[in-house]
Nucleic acid binder design. Structure first.
Length: 110
DNA sequence: CCAATGACTACAA
DNA sequence: GTTGTAGCCATTG
């Protein structure tokens, strides 16, 4: 495997730590895994995480609290429904009480 | 190896 | 506040 394998693993590891009814941002995860400048890669990793039920990709949004990656889910509003099902208010693909439901992961250390 | 892509973010106008 | 440009870096062709 490649070095990037660890990168994905770290992303999944942090994503799994997201508590119920909470959300986080790509930048927060990227920073937590020690790759704050690789926020894009976090979203990219989420692509493969969609198959993993252990990784709630629907709880990961961009820094504005917008469901930018909803198109990657099965349906067009599946991501929003999942969030609303957890008590997260979403409107027009954007989380309303974003700051209230926002959860920041802890920095991973080796 | 080089070029293009992307579920991002920050800054400038 | 909106729009545009640039930086970022792993993946893919």
């Amino acid at each position: 495997m490649s070095t990037s394998a660890n990168f994905f693993e770290k992303v999944y590891q942090v994503a799994r730590q997201i508590p119920y009814g909470k959300v986080t941002t790509y930048g927060a995860i990227a920073k937590a895994i020690g790759a704050a400048k690789s926020a894009r890669m976090v979203g990219y990793a989420m692509n493969g995480a969609g198959e993993r039920e252990d990784v709630p990709a629907h709880r990961v949004v961009n820094r504005k609290g917008v469901l930018t990656g909803k198109h990657h889910f099965s349906g067009t509003n599946l991501m929003q429904q999942l969030l609303e099902s957890e008590g997260v208010q979403v409107k027009d693909n954007q989380i309303q009480n974003f700051q209230e439901v926002l959860w920041e992961p802890e920095i991973l250390s080796e």
